[in-house]
Structures are given as structure tokens and as C-alpha cells.
Nucleic acid binder design. Sequence first.
DNA 1: TCCATTTGACCCAC
DNA 2: GTGGGTCAAATGGA
Length: 374
Amino acid sequence: MAFGQDTIEQLYRELAGGRRLSAKLQALLEGPLDSRGQKEAVDVSRELGRVFMVSLYMLKPCSNSSRRPEGVTRTAPETRTDDSICLHTPARVKRVRSEEVLVRNGREEVVTRTEIITPSPYKDGYQWRKYGQKNIQDSNYLRLYFKCTFSRERSCAAKKQVQQRDAGEPPMFLVTYLNEHTCQQPQAVPGTPNTAGSSPTTTSRQRQSSSSPPAEMLDLTMNGAGLFSRLLLPHAVGGGGSAAEEEAAIVTCLAAVISGGAAAAPPPLIWPTSAPEAAFVASAAGHSPSAADESVADEAAAAQMADMDYCFGQYDQSTFGAAAAADHRVLIGDDGDVQRIVAARIADTVWPRYTRDTSAWETAGTSSMRGSID
DNA sequence: TCCATTTGACCCAC
DNA sequence: GTGGGTCAAATGGA
């Protein structure tokens, strides 16, 4: 599997955001839940679902019969792999950077203009203040206008416009950045220009406590190779991880987010076959891990997956194929157990390559598959 | 009380 | 005149 740098970086952002949402949801649910808290929990859950949807779409298996979810446009050349997993990059259909001379009040102004199309228009590492919105002709959606939060106090001219393009799943937004930040905000996440922004709902308290960059503002400008090994596998071989390590890290992160556990880094090339994550993926794939594993992970994983049902609702059997379901003994009910198929494909195509202890996979239908990979 | 968001009005280029 | 962009008073949440 060959991951493009942009794809890896976006996947990391999505999953890191998902991890935070998971923690937030857990904190909400652990406390007394009034109506407001309930609403917030629902909102967080929805956003979490979107994170999964985007992440899984990026990891979606390729097949001739596969089709992208309704409304998700072809975004970038797909990288086909030996394992028939394609990397989709829904975050940036295009990225156009240009300089324009605008005449305003009789004066010519040179502005840099960068356009990207993304399902996550608000998370770009900078802080913005919304100052207007407008109905735009020939568009069904409002255009939102943002200024840098520090536009006045630091004379920062950076602006941002966000306009939804379609109602797909996930919906895609055209984000236009105007002018460069001159306010010395923490570095944005990669792939976004120097004008990118955080959620428009950033509060003053958040700003006051933002002297150190949040997690998503880690310096990700290193090249793709080794990115995950440095972020998620700090103990892995230094000097740039292998593609295998990156895959392992991605699966770890994804599984940890799904299972709600910490994104613990596995020892290089030796998968923790008794870890809750492994148990969860194996069980979700229809395999039969040890009883101990199941007892740890199944209930919580099933509950979380149930919560995420709507997220995968637009995937149907034809997306992942009846063959996959049969191969992995996954039952596809009328209500769509597609999430199990997603997990199965991840588990079957990537996960087994990192386990030398095959005991957890000694179930019907997996040994032959493992043999085909080895 | 402070601050971000909302929203109608205004400005200006085309 | 029209449409896109911006301003600023009103509003509401913390």
C-alpha cells in the first residue's frame, strides 16, 4: 500500500480529530446528562461519524463494482495496491493558488488566493471570526465569510470564505483563503495555506489558553515516509519508517478510535494479538479471537459501532461486495452491517501482515487469506 | 460583562 | 441595477 503524503496527513488529521471527539463524548456521557448535554453529545457523535466516514472512504477497498458514496466526487487519482485498497483523498479535490490584483477604492491590492475543496472546512489550525454570510446566486448554499481573529490587534489581513458545494456524504465545501496570515498564529496543519482556520466557534477562553498548539497543529511538514512512525510509533526505527510501519500505525489509530481506546503504538511488526483493538477488529470481521479478547472488546465495540450506524448507512453491499462478506463470514442484514465489512477488509488486508502470532486468526476463512498475503 | 455570531444595510465593482 | 463583500448594531451564550 503506497500512501501519498497528502492522504496520510489528512487521514491523520481526521483520526486525531476523531480521537478528541471520542474523548469529549466519553466525558459528556460520564457526567450527568441534561438536555443540553444530550444535544451536545448527539452533535459530537454526528461529527465523529463524519470522521469515520471520511477516514473509511479514504481506506475504502477498490473493486470494479465499487462505487463511491452518493455525492462524494472523484477527488484524486486513486492508488491501487496489491491488497486492492485504494487511498482516496476527499479532502482536496483541487488546490489552486494564485495571486490576483484587486482594485478597491481606486487602489490596486495584490492578494494571494488559494482554493481547496474539503469535507472539513473549519479545522485548519487557525482561528477565525465570522463576519458575514451571503446568499450567492446560482448556489443553494450560503457563503460564509471569516476574518482572522487577530485581524485588528495584529493587523492580519487573512480571510477565508466557506461555501458548501453539494449535499453529499460527506458534503464538500469550497474554501477560499485570501491573503497570508501575518499574525504569527501557530502553524496550520499541512495542506492548508498559511491562511487556514479552526472552528469558527473558537471561544475567547480557548484563545487565551492557546499559547501552545493543539494536537492537530503538530508540525506535520516532514515528508510522508516516517510521518506516522514519528507521530505514533516513537519507538519505531528512526530515520523514516517503512511503508509497513505506516500502515500499522494507521490501522492502530483507526482501530483505537473505533474502539475508543488509546492510540497505543504497537511494537514494530508484532501486532498485539490480545489487545482490545485486535480483538475488536477480528470480531468485527467475523473472526473468532480468543474468548478473553472478545470479553474485553466486543461489547464496547459493538455499542460504539451501533452508534455509528448512520455513518455507514450510505455504503451498501455492492460497495464492498458480497464476496467479501462470504469470505469473512460476515452477515449482511437488511439493516446493513456494513461497518463489519469495512472492519473485515481492513483486518484481512492489512492487519494480519503485522502479526507473527497467528493464533488469533486461526479461524475458518482466514488462514487461506493469510497465506495469500504471506 | 465580554465576546462571537447573526443579520440587515451599505459599499462598490462590474 | 445587480451581486458579492463588508460593516456594525443587535442578540445571545458563557
